[in-house]
């Protein structure tokens, strides 16, 4: 099966000269959870942000190489960035409900995409909330403020908001960083369900989480791709000494 997303010699340099990504070549298969892990400042978040071109927001940053998504290089000039972000949606470390009700948060992206049919909107709201395992908790108060939800609920709302757009790929930047173990388990459980329909690329909260949820994983260090492989291989018998040191807790 051809990969969902391919990175070819991708480099990314911030305007202050810091090379966040160095010459990364990587294939991400469809319908699985692909984990990108490594110590802080290793370039994980930057990599995610490049994938849906949120990195465009950094004035004066430079990139080389190519990212191929559905047989097209996302850096090409005729790519519609707004559309790309609907196809490759992102959930952040800090839950970011937007001002408004729970329902508003979910229909927001849809309405901006031009979907106005009330029935379609209702359907999407319900389905995305169910997919994010939030439906049972909020079904009776869809018109309440999104800010009134707990931290874990907010994060699942943000996940649902991305799912409502029916994207191809979901980027998760440390989605459980602020959550208690119970909420974390709920988010992880919904991910196992979701990978049947979506491709999930995730920066995990910890190496343990990486080992729990990943199908394939890539280890980044100082912007370099050190090792990539199946979970069973990468976490049990890493080929690279640095990967082994990191996983066994010798640094990082």
């Amino acid at each position: 099966m051809s990969p969902k997303i391919s990175l070819a010699n991708l480099s990314f340099t911030y305007p202050d000269g810091v090379a966040a990504l160095k010459n990364i070549t990587l294939d991400i298969p469809a319908n699985e959870i692909f984990v990108i892990f490594g110590p802080s400042r290793s370039g994980k978040s930057t990599l995610l942000r490049v994938l849906n071109r949120l990195s465009d927001l950094v004035e004066g940053a430079q990139h080389q190489g190519a990212v191929t998504f559905n047989n097209q290089n996302i850096f090409e000039r005729d790519v519609n960035v707004t559309d790309l972000r609907r196809r490759i949606s992102m959930v952040f470390a800090i839950p970011t409900p937007l001002p408004g009700s729970i329902r508003d948060n979910l229909t927001y992206g849809l309405r901006m995409a031009g979907i106005r049919d009330v029935q379609t909107l209702e359907e999407r709201v319900m389905r995305s909330l169910k997919q994010a395992a939030l439906w049972d908790e909020v079904k009776d108060r869809l018109d309440a403020s999104a800010f009134a939800l707990s931290g874990g609920q907010k994060q699942r709302l943000c996940l649902a908001r991305s799912l409502a757009l029916e994207p191809d790929v979901i980027l998760l930047d440390n989605p459980t960083s602020g959550l208690d173990p119970l909420s974390t388990a709920m988010v992880e459980d919904s991910l196992y369900e979701l990978k049947r329909r979506y491709t999930i690329i995730m920066v995990p909260h910890s190496t343990q989480q990486a080992a729990r949820v990943a199908d394939n994983a890539a280890f980044l260090l100082d912007g370099e791709l050190v090792e990539v492989g199946k979970k069973s291989q990468l976490f049990m018998r890493p080929k690279n000494k640095r990967t082994e040191d990191y996983i066994t807790g010798r640094f990082g």
Binding site: L54, T82, M90, F92, P97, A113, L165
Partner: peptide
């Protein structure tokens, strides 16, 4: 985060500014 959140679900820059 508000801006990122809106942009990440496909809001244009103007939609992000005016609605968020």
């Amino acid at each position: 985060e508000y801006r990122d959140g809106a942009l990440a679900i496909g809001a244009t820059q103007w939609q992000t500014i005016w609605r968020v």
